[in-house]
Nucleic acid binder design. Structure first.
Lengths: 328, 328
DNA sequence: CTGTTAGCGCGTTCAC
DNA sequence: GTGAACGCGCTAACAG
C-alpha cells in the first residue's frame, strides 16, 4: 500500500538519490532513466511522505489559526476565505478553538509550535508583554486579527473607531440627539484582550464629545435589556440605540417587540457587523458591513508572504460601509 | 532556540538513548541521571520535535475533517464539539472545506492522506463505488456524517426519514390536510451525494402515502417561492409548508410577509434543523431540533476508538425533538 | 549522469 | 544502567 522511494529505487535498479532527481525533476539525470522511474512511480501510485519531507526541509506547509469563537459568523466566514487562499498556495490549516480560555490559548499555541507550523494567525484573548514575549520566542511569523496585540505584530482588521464615529454621524444626520451605546463588559480590560469592544467604545465617546447638544449613555451590564427599557422610558426625545455588535441589536429588537416599543417609531436601533442572518429579521436592521472575506484572504496572503521572508505591513485595514435599512 | 535531545545528551555527558529513557520515563536508568537530564531539559525548555516523533511512531495524532459547507451553522457547531473532544484526547484537526466541489474533495482527501492523518471525518459530496474504493485504499479509518456512504463506512447522524414522518404526524395533529414540501433539487441524485435531502424527501412521501384524505405537493425548483405562492392561492384549505431545512423556512417566512400572507393564520410553516438564529425570527418557527453537538462529539470519539483498533458501530443515530412554536 | 554519504530528530532494539 | 547502532522516508552535497 505505502510505496517508498527506496522501493522504486530497487525496482528500477538505481539508488534513492537518482529516484529523487527524477521525482523532483532536478538536473543531472538522463531522460531515459527519468522516464522509467516516473513510470514505475506512477504505476505504484507513489506519493511522497509528507512528514519525512517536512522534517528534512524544515517547513510543513501548514498554518495554525486560533479562534476564540466559531459560533460567531464573522469567524467562520473569515476561516472560509483564509482557508481558500491558503489552499491555493499549498498550505493546510490546523484550526483550534480557544473558547476565550487564556490558558488553553497558550497551550494551543505551544502545540502548534511543536508541530512546526510555518505560521500562526491568531485572534488573541491574551494580551500584554508577557504574552507577547512568549509569542516572540516562537520564531515563526504570527499575525493577528480581531483583537490586537502590540504594534510589533501584523494586524488585519477594520478601523473600528472610525467606523463607530461614522455610525454616530449617520445617526445624528437622522435627527437623533440621544444615544444609548451597548457594549460588552469592559472591566476585564486589564486581564483580557478586548481590543475590538474597547476601540468601538472609544470611538463612540470621541464622537459624542465632539458634538454639542447630545445626550448619551453607555451600557455594559449583563442584563442590559432592563437598563435599556428604563432609559427609553426616561428619554425626553427619541433615542437611538447603537450596538457594538449585531447580536445585541437582535436581542434588543426582540425585547422591544415583546414590550410593544416600536422601531423606528419609538426608538432607533443600529448594529455592527452585518451578520448574514439580518436578512431574515424584521425590521431590517441598519448596521455596518465590513469585508470579512477580505480579512481572511489578506491574513492568509500576508502571513504566507511573511513566511517567505517578505516584510509585510504591520496594520492592514479593510473597508466598511454603513448599510442603511429601516431601523433608524 | 530549538533544543534537541542530542544537545541535552551532550550537556549531560550521556547518549541520546539515555536521554530518551529519562524523557519518556522508561525503565533502565538511575534516578540520579534521570533527575539531571530532566533538569537540563526543563532549563533549556526542551520540547520534542513532533514531526520526528510522528515519523518514527507512524502516527500523527492528527485528524482531518472535510466539510462541504461552513456557512451552515450546523457544521460550524459540529466542528466545535468535534474539536473539543479530539483535543481532550490529544488530537489536532486539519479543517478543509470542499465547497461542494467533488474534485476538490478528492484532492483534499489525498492531501490529508499524504500528511498521514490518523483518521478522517467526512461529510461527503462524492458518492458511489468508485469513490468508496478510493477511500478504502487509504487504509485509515474514515467516518462520515451528514451525507452517507455505503454501510461499510461508519455514519453518525440522525434518522432523517423518521424525523420527517413525525413532523408530518405533528402537522396532521394540528388539523392540516394539505402539504407543500420544500426540498433542494433532487435530480443530481446520481451524481452528487445528497443523502440528507433524499432521506427527508422519502420520509415525507412515505408518511403521506400512509395517510388518507391528504393532498401534497413537492417543490424542488430553484425559484420555489413563486410556486409556493401559486399553490397557496389555489389551495382549498389552509396548507402547511414543510421545509427540509430552516433556511427555506426563513426565506419563505420573509416572502409571505411581503405578500401579506399571514403565518399561521393563512398558512402553516415548519422547518428542520433548529438553527440558532430562529431565536430572532418572527413568528417563532416550529422546527425539528437535533443534537448537533452530540454528532460532533460522538464522531470524534468513535473515529479515535476506531483508530485505536476498536470496532465501532456502523450507524449511530442521535436524538431529535420537535420544537413546537407558533408557525403552525 | 549516477552512487555514496550524511543528515533531519527521535524511538528502539541490541550488546556490554 | 548505559552506549552503540539502526531505521522512519526523504533531501542534498560530494564524489566518481
Amino acid at each position: 500500500m505505502k510505496v517508498t522511494s527506496k522501493q522504486i529505487a530497487e525496482i528500477c535498479g538505481v539508488t534513492r538519490g537518482t529516484v529523487d532527481r527524477a521525482l523532483n525533476n532536478r538536473p543531472g539525470i538522463s531522460a531515459e532513466t527519468r522516464q522509467k522511474i516516473m513510470k514505475v512511480a506512477e504505476e505504484l501510485g507513489y506519493r511522497p511522505h509528507f512528514l519525512a519531507q517536512s522534517l528534512v526541509k524544515g517547513e510543513t506547509k501548514t498554518l495554525g489559526i486560533v479562534l476564540f469563537d466559531i459560533h460567531n459568523r464573522i469567524f467562520s466566514q473569515l476561516f472560509h476565505s483564509f482557508e481558500a487562499e491558503a489552499r491555493k498556495q499549498g498550505y493546510f490549516i490546523y484550526l483550534v478553538l480557544s473558547n476565550k480560555d487564556k490558558e488553553l490559548e497558550i497551550e494551543y499555541i505551544n502545540s502548534l509550535l511543536d508541530r512546526k507550523v510555518d505560521g500562526i494567525a491568531l485572534s488573541p484573548i491574551n494580551k500584554g508583554t508577557k504574552f507577547e514575549s512568549f509569542l516572540n520566542r516562537s520564531n515563526v511569523p504570527i499575525l493577528s486579527f480581531g483583537n490586537r496585540l502590540s504594534a510589533r505584530f501584523p494586524f488585519v482588521w477594520i478601523d473600528d473607531k472610525q467606523a463607530i464615529k461614522e455610525a454616530v454621524s449617520h445617526i445624528v444626520s437622522r435627527g437623533y440627539r440621544t444615544f444609548i451605546y451597548v457594549s460588552p463588559p469592559l472591566r476585564n480590560k486589564g486581564k483580557e484582550n478586548i481590543y475590538v469592544p474597547e476601540q468601538r467604545h472609544k470611538g463612540f465617546l470621541e464622537a459624542c464629545k465632539a458634538l454639542t447638544d447630545i445626550r448619551y449613555h453607555v451600557i455594559t451590564d449583563r442584563d442590559y435589556l432592563m437598563t435599556i427599557k428604563r432609559l427609553v422610558n426616561e428619554a425626553e426625545d427619541k433615542p437611538a440605540i447603537l450596538c457594538s455588535s449585531d447580536i445585541y441589536a437582535l436581542d434588543i429588537l426582540r425585547f422591544l417587540k415583546t414590550h410593544k416599543i416600536r422601531v423606528p417609531e419609538h426608538v432607533g436601533v443600529m448594529g455592527f457587523d452585518n451578520i448574514d442572518i439580518l436578512n431574515y429579521v424584521n425590521p431590517p436592521l441598519t448596521t455596518i458591513d465590513f469585508n470579512v472575506d477580505e480579512i481572511g484572504r489578506r491574513s492568509a496572503e500576508l502571513l504566507i508572504e511573511n513566511i517567505k521572508g517578505k516584510d509585510i505591513p504591520l496594520r492592514t485595514n479593510v473597508g466598511y460601509t454603513i448599510i442603511d435599512r429601516d431601523s433608524l
